[in-house]
Amino acid sequence: MEKIETHRIFGGEQSVWKHASATLGCEMRFAVFVPDHAPGAKLPVIYWLSGLTCTEQNFITKAGAQSYAAKAGVILVAPDTSPRGEGVADDAGYDLGQGAGFYLNATEAPWAGHYRMYDYITEELPGLIEAGFPASERRSIMGHSMGGHGALVIALKNPGRYAAVSAFSPIVAPALVPWGQKAFTAYLGADRAAWAAWDATALLAQAGERLPILIDQGEADPFLEAELKPWLFEAAAAAAGHPLTLRRHEGYDHSYYFIATFIGEHIAHHAAALAA
């Protein structure tokens, strides 16, 4: 790993790193905030997954999360949203290819060679964090939009691995909305039966753990009706008896202004679970 950026903030260090990813077959970047801590201490980790078009920079510069993480004594990790670089497959649209990895393992050409973000987030990245930073094996996960989809899917597919999960404006039923249908067709192929393994609403019915889920959704979100449809996830949770807190916020949109408003409550949600 090579440190390429570092800043002192709220009594901690915000850094950005790059490394050669064996999982993705390209160079990747990720951001880490480490609060001040006692020598030898091991801190729990919250992973943040960003949305379409984002990099590791959006969350660390716009969410205002570091102050809350410093008070809670937790590490924040924010990876990039996809493999990148020359030779990595891409698409002319913003919602497929580089910047739009959807946190799954692609099976179709030309994507399968690099687009294995699920393995990267669940295996390679935690290995780097726990080996290279004062991180314990206690971890939780959250995200926004496409990253909210990723956080929910990853938590549901890995019972016992995460202490908590939360999301802002997540794509909860990608198999049923244009963003997800475009990505899933390209990455996974036309067989919709294969899509269920990467759809949070479908996974909820067979969840092996009743990990409480927190979701915040802005009522003025321009993507609410066509792409997000949180009521589908709400109905699936009710049918499965799965604990869900879905908070709707009048006047809030899809932006980081919304995230910054409630990020403190999400970090508190995770910190409490990580301390339990």
Rank of each mutant, 00 (worst) to 15 (best):
K3D: 08
I4E: 02
H7R: 12
G12V: 00
V16N: 00
K18C: 11
K18H: 01
S21I: 06
G25H: 12
G25V: 12
M28F: 13
F30R: 04
A31P: 05
V34R: 00
A38N: 05
L43A: 07
L43R: 04
Y47S: 06
L49W: 08
S50A: 15
S50W: 13
T53N: 10
C54D: 14
E56H: 05
Q57R: 15
F59P: 00
F59T: 00
I60C: 06
T61L: 06
K62G: 01
S67D: 04
S67V: 15
Y68W: 05
K71Y: 05
K71R: 13
G73A: 11
L76I: 09
L76F: 10
V77I: 05
A78R: 03
P79Q: 12
D80T: 09
T81W: 10
G85C: 02
E86Q: 10
V88C: 10
D90V: 05
A92K: 13
A92L: 09
Y94G: 03
D95T: 11
D95H: 09
L96K: 00
Q98E: 05
G99N: 05
N105L: 06
A106V: 04
T107G: 04
E108Y: 11
P110R: 04
W111G: 03
A112S: 14
A112I: 03
H114Q: 01
Y118K: 06
D119F: 07
I129S: 08
I129A: 03
I129P: 03
A131W: 11
F133H: 08
E137A: 15
I141N: 01
G143Q: 13
S145I: 12
S145A: 15
G147S: 13
G148Y: 10
G150V: 00
G150Y: 02
A151R: 07
V153N: 04
I154Y: 14
A155Q: 04
L156T: 10
N158P: 13
N158W: 08
G160P: 02
A167P: 01
F168A: 00
F168L: 00
F168H: 00
S169L: 11
P170T: 00
V172P: 02
A173V: 10
P174D: 03
A175Q: 10
L176T: 15
P178F: 14
K182Q: 08
K182L: 14
A186W: 04
A186N: 13
L188H: 13
G189I: 06
A190P: 07
R192E: 15
A194F: 06
A205W: 08
E209Y: 07
D216I: 01
Q217G: 01
Q217W: 10
G218P: 12
E219W: 05
A220V: 09
D221G: 08
P222R: 15
P222L: 12
L224Q: 13
E225F: 02
E225R: 06
A226P: 01
E227W: 11
K229M: 00
P230L: 01
E234Y: 12
E234A: 14
A235K: 08
A237D: 02
A240E: 12
P243F: 03
L244S: 00
T245Y: 02
T245N: 15
R248T: 02
H249M: 04
D253E: 13
Y256T: 07
Y257I: 09
Y257V: 06
F262M: 13
H269S: 08
A276M: 03
